[in-house]
Simulated assay, not measured.
Amino acid sequence: MRLLITIFALTLLPTIVLGQQRTIKGRLVSVDDRTPIPGWNVLEPGTKNGTVTDVNGEFTLTLNSQPTIIWFPQCFTQLYVEYEENIDFKEIVLGTDIRDQIYKDSKKIERKLTRAQPTRNLWGEIIHKKTKDPVDSCEIRIKGTMEVVYSNAKGGFMITVPNNKTIQLEINKGGLSQLVTYDVDTDFKRMKLKYK
């Protein structure tokens, strides 16, 4: 009996997985004259799943993720486009006018993707408050943890932190200590370390 249940479950699994997939279509055109743009990559963000626009600027792509977001990495603005649940086809306008609504929407989608990740990278630069020289070998840690990174010869550092929360970093150098706060939308700070 267990064998029959196992076989039945395994035959249903592909149906369940396929049920989560969605096939979308689109046409990539120029903002100037609406002519098709062939040969452009279309990708599912964070995967190698992708396709290329044909001679008519059209593409078809089956995605595994929800919400349905596609990415045009060749675009200098790294264009992201989201398909709502009830839309399976979009004409996507590509042009140099970054004030166009499509680019504003793209930035919102990019932020949404970034915030969905479990971690993010914080960058910083530590300089001497008076001389403005870089301060190397500073100890940098997330407050309350033991993970430590050190600033390099140019005072720079990068540390990986949990995403979607305010982070406090403890900066230590030769007995000097400083607490620096990065809010949810901040990824870089220049810190001026004050020597006595």
Score class of each variant (00 low, 15 high):
6 T>K: 01
7 I>T: 09
8 F>S: 14
9 A>S: 14
9 A>H: 11
10 L>S: 13
12 L>D: 08
15 T>M: 15
20 Q>P: 07
23 T>W: 07
25 K>T: 12
26 G>K: 02
29 V>K: 02
29 V>P: 07
29 V>Y: 09
32 D>Q: 05
34 R>S: 12
35 T>V: 07
36 P>A: 07
36 P>T: 08
39 G>V: 10
42 V>S: 04
43 L>H: 11
44 E>S: 14
51 T>E: 02
52 V>N: 02
57 G>A: 09
57 G>N: 08
59 F>E: 03
66 Q>H: 13
66 Q>W: 12
67 P>A: 02
70 I>E: 06
72 F>L: 10
73 P>L: 00
74 Q>N: 03
76 F>V: 10
77 T>W: 11
77 T>F: 12
79 L>Y: 04
80 Y>R: 01
80 Y>N: 05
81 V>G: 01
83 Y>D: 01
84 E>H: 08
87 I>W: 00
90 K>R: 05
91 E>T: 15
91 E>N: 11
92 I>R: 02
94 L>Y: 11
95 G>Q: 03
95 G>I: 09
98 I>T: 12
100 D>V: 03
103 Y>T: 01
104 K>F: 12
107 K>R: 04
107 K>H: 03
108 K>W: 00
108 K>Y: 02
112 K>L: 10
113 L>P: 11
113 L>R: 10
113 L>D: 08
115 R>E: 09
117 Q>N: 10
118 P>K: 06
122 L>Q: 04
126 I>Q: 03
128 H>L: 03
128 H>Q: 06
130 K>F: 11
130 K>N: 12
131 T>Q: 03
132 K>D: 07
137 S>W: 07
139 E>Y: 07
140 I>V: 15
141 R>I: 13
142 I>H: 04
144 G>P: 10
145 T>R: 06
145 T>Y: 08
148 V>H: 04
150 Y>I: 07
153 A>S: 11
156 G>T: 11
156 G>L: 08
158 M>F: 04
160 T>V: 12
161 V>F: 11
162 P>I: 10
166 T>Q: 13
167 I>R: 02
168 Q>I: 12
172 N>H: 13
173 K>Y: 15
175 G>Q: 06
175 G>E: 10
178 Q>M: 13
179 L>G: 05
181 T>I: 15
184 V>F: 09
186 T>C: 10
187 D>W: 06
187 D>E: 04
188 F>Y: 13
188 F>L: 03
189 K>A: 07
190 R>G: 08
192 K>Q: 13
193 L>D: 09
195 Y>A: 01
195 Y>R: 00
